[in-house]
Design a protein around this nucleic acid. Structure first.
Lengths: 120, 120
DNA sequence: CTATTATCTCAATAATTCTTGAATTGTTGA
DNA sequence: TCAACAATTCAAGAATTATTGAGATAATAG
């Protein structure tokens, strides 16, 4: 993830409908959802509007698509999301662990450390 | 950090000049830099342009300002940055540790565990 | 008090992004 | 093949955001 890619990703995430789509798709991961189903979940947004936002997200690498019959199934690109977090933190941490540490703590509590099977 | 705040933060970070300002200020943390000095670092951008972007960033909670004599000193709001990471990951991790784990790994390597002089 | 420096504010314009609706492409089943 | 469905593409207009330059505000030095 370089600055240009991060810029695209941030732009993609800075629009309400698109941010909601991403959250929806993360929840629906890894199966994904058809464009139509996503539109329904977005208060019945029009298909051309969905297309516009979905292709924007795809350009930014935040979602992926595949055809399944008449439908096109979209799914979250999880590796781009973690790449974005890494980019943000790479910036933050230039000698300033006071940013990273709270972020680490937040991450740890959110990513349950697979209790029991701890290993570095 | 709620969705609305995250939306503002992403919008603020989705503009090249502003993303560069944030990175610059994270590097200059915690002292900060005067608006003029930031402008110089941004290829000599005009003062009104700087003002526009700096106030946008301040609105989004990504930077803070204080007056020092004639200058206004801006500094990175590190807690908002880590809040944003937390927001992203809270989303990502809804039952999908496969996102979080790479992100955790990236964070760990970026936030060198203060070898030697470690002290909470 | 005046001149100078640092920054902000405002209005106009330029540029970009979003929405809408109509037309188009691709897929399936009868 | 044809009708129906799912989604995309395109063009026009609306809305938002960024840049510029002129003028205002605030602080300091002389």
């Amino acid at each position: 993830m370089n600055e240009k890619q991060a810029l695209h990703a941030f732009a993609a995430l800075s629009q309400e409908t698109r941010l909601r789509i991403v959250r929806q798709l993360v929840t629906a991961s890894p199966e994904g959802m058809s464009a139509g189903a996503i539109g329904e979940a977005m208060d019945g947004a029009s298909s051309s509007r969905m297309s516009f936002h979905l292709s924007h997200l795809e350009q930014a690498g935040l979602v992926e698509s595949r055809r399944d019959g008449r439908s096109i199934i979209y799914s979250a690109a999880l590796t781009t999301l973690s790449g974005l977090v890494e980019f943000l933190m790479r910036d933050c941490c230039q000698g300033h662990p006071e940013v990273c540490n709270p972020a680490m703590a937040a991450l740890s509590s959110c990513c349950e450390p697979t209790k029991g099977t701890s290993h570095v």
